[in-house]
Design a protein around this nucleic acid. Sequence first.
DNA 1: CACACAACCTGCGAGC
DNA 2: TGCTCGCAGGTTGTGT
Length: 270
Amino acid sequence: MPELPEVETIKKELKKNCLKKQINKIIIYNNKLKYIIPKKIKKIKKQIILKIKRFSKFLIIKTNKYYLLIHLGMSGNILLINKIKKNTKHDHWDLILNNKKVIRYNDIRKFGYLLIFNSKKKIKKIISKLGPEPLKKTFNSKYLYKITKKKKRCIHNLIMDNKIISGIGNIYANESLYLSKIKPYRKSNSLSYQETKTLVTNIKLILKQALFYKGTTIRNYKNINNNYGFFQNKLLVYQKFGQQCLFCKKTIQKIKKYGRNLYFCKKCQK
DNA sequence: CACACAACCTGCGAGC
DNA sequence: TGCTCGCAGGTTGTGT
């Protein structure tokens, strides 16, 4: 589910409601996630939430002594509920705050996880393996061009690689390649500098737009107040198989590559 | 090393 | 109606 704009939206809303609140306790309903929640998590009791950050698709909650690292996988949802409610199917854990609010994690497909660390170093180690954030200045055409020249991979696969750029998933990869008029299955080293530059611009543009619309709901993404994102109404090519290309009216194609669906216009994208 | 692909898990929609 | 199949926003591990 969640790519960068969705996680950023969740972060902003959590910040509004949970900063400086004390965690009264954690309740684990279902520990079958990608990684088992460490036993140490119990120590989060009585900790104060000092900072809430996002890096790539990770949410990081800093307390007095600990760092919680949350990844939402494909279908993870974080909800902020106003009082303790009975858990429902696929709820995994609750953080009960001292203002009676509850941060609840729900994840149908169980690809997400919650980890706890007691030092910034360990968090930094995880983050250091990731490429730059697409909206930061460190992600620019010079950086991307250097990498595209070195690799022979499909450009779509390359921009989805978190070690190269962190935070772009399939939706935004398809959308930004469409706007940039680059076929998703082009070998990355065939891109000209100008094309790389256009791609960088469009990745930033698409992500900013998606942020503005509070993310994309395809199936089950919701923000913490149980509302859907709106960017799915603005998608130009993702899941538009069989429909007309906005620019040339030709039919949008879909092919499957490395387990991902690529949507594109054969005529517009070179 | 670099890339492609399966696997992890569940629910849903399409097609029969 | 009900079954089976394929598919989904992500990441990791394995194999070529």
